[in-house]
Computed example of a mutant assay.
Amino acid sequence: MVITVAELLEKIKFDVVYTSETALKKEITTSDVTRPGLEMTGYLEYYTPERIQLFGMKEWSYVQNVIGDNRYDLLKNIVTDATPAIIVARGLPIPDEMVSVAKKRDTVLLQSTEPTSRLNGAITAFLDEKLSTRTTVHGVLMDIFGVGVLIQGSSGIGKSETGLELIKRGHRLVADDRVDVYQKDEFTVMGEPAEILRHLIELRGVGIIDVMSLFGAGAVMDSSKIDLTVYLEKYEKGNTYDRLGNGETTTEFSGVSVPQVKIPVTTGRNVSVIIEAAVMNFRAKQMGFDATKMFEERLSNLIAKNS
């Protein structure tokens, strides 16, 4: 997956020093950002011109100390036609030679008042997210009490209907039917809708409805973490179901394990209320309150007392 320089400018605020229509269409293919200190000394053996080139105080000071034509030649070696953008941090003044090189290479030249390290982190985080490999899973992704919940189950089990009921109860829809999942970092997996399905939900017998139009902007989100998965399964008499909550299971997305709750579905069960309770219980466990452990302790104390 790639993004363009224009998409970077939409996300992060810069002062544009030089740009062109073709320069904005240049593709960024890696989240790595280069601060070309060693390269400016002439060592270019492992130089990667396809990265964004970020100039902080150290790099800028070195450029300022290179006299005359050497400054232009030095920058021309670093900035190639493959370079997507040059960024100067800390609001530092941009040398005329850098502007000339940007025009010669048709490369966007940007300036930011942000400190170099903070700017580097913001750019890398944005590119990591956008360039991450996406996988598609079937389900409904909701934000419930601030927890990202992916509702899954076999076709026709009632995932979208449950999602609609949760929306009516004040929770927010992220994606219906198709959820694009990607790893944000080592511990976090994110989900977002396919662009064609954004803010839409499909109900058998009714068709496609626009959640944002019917319920307002507060009923939708563009993306969310996946903190918990809820798997809806048809209730079958004779099957054994977890009644104490100590049978913890997980499922994996993009290399990240996510806790899973399995809920049997049958006539008369209010699935949306049960999911809300599961989410509140999940939050309580994260805060150190575990009702299952409390019950087991009370049971152990009762057995010890009666014995």
Rank of each mutant, 00 (worst) to 15 (best):
I201Q: 07
S213D: 15
I196Y: 03
P193R: 02
L214K: 04
F215E: 12
L197Y: 06
A194V: 04
I226W: 09
I208T: 09
V206A: 03
D222K: 11
V211K: 00
F215R: 11
V220H: 02
F215Q: 08
R198M: 05
A194G: 00
I208N: 08
L203I: 15
A219I: 08
L228D: 13
I208C: 10
G207M: 03
I201P: 05
I196A: 12
P193F: 00
G207H: 07
D227E: 12
I196L: 14
V211D: 02
M221S: 14
A219P: 11
S224I: 03
H199E: 11
M212Y: 05
I208P: 05
I201G: 00
E202R: 08
V206H: 02
I201C: 04
M212E: 15
R198Q: 09
G205K: 05
E192T: 14
I196E: 09
G207D: 02
A194N: 00
I201L: 15
V211Q: 01
G205A: 11
G216Y: 00
R204G: 09
E202H: 08
V211Y: 00
R198G: 04
K225N: 13
E202M: 08
I226K: 05
I209R: 03
R204Y: 08
I209T: 11
S223H: 13
M221D: 14
L228I: 01
I201N: 01
L228G: 06
S223Y: 12
E195S: 12
L214Q: 13
S224Y: 03
R198N: 08
M221E: 15
L228R: 09
R198H: 06
V211P: 05
I196G: 02
R204I: 14
D227Y: 06
L214E: 10
L228C: 04
V211F: 02
V230E: 07
V220A: 07
I226N: 09
R204E: 07
F215K: 00
M221G: 09
I209W: 02
M221Q: 14
V230P: 01
M221R: 15
G207K: 07
L228K: 10
L203P: 00
G207W: 00
S223N: 14
G207E: 06
L228Q: 07
G218V: 08
P193A: 02
H199P: 04
S224H: 05
R204H: 06
G207F: 01
F215A: 10
L203R: 00
S213F: 04
S223I: 12
G218A: 10
H199Y: 14
M212I: 15
S223P: 14
T229A: 10
L197D: 08
I196C: 01
S223Q: 14
T229Q: 13
K225D: 10
R198A: 11
G205S: 05
I201S: 07
S224A: 14
E195Q: 07
V211R: 00
A194P: 00
M212N: 13
L214M: 14
A194I: 03
V220L: 03
A217E: 13
G191Y: 06
P193M: 04
F215I: 12
G191E: 02
G218I: 08
G216Q: 06
S213A: 15
A219C: 13
M212C: 05
L197N: 01
L203T: 06
I208R: 02
S213K: 11
D222V: 14
R204M: 03
E195M: 11
R198W: 01
L197A: 05
G191H: 03
F215N: 10
H199I: 07
K225Y: 09
V211H: 01
P193C: 02
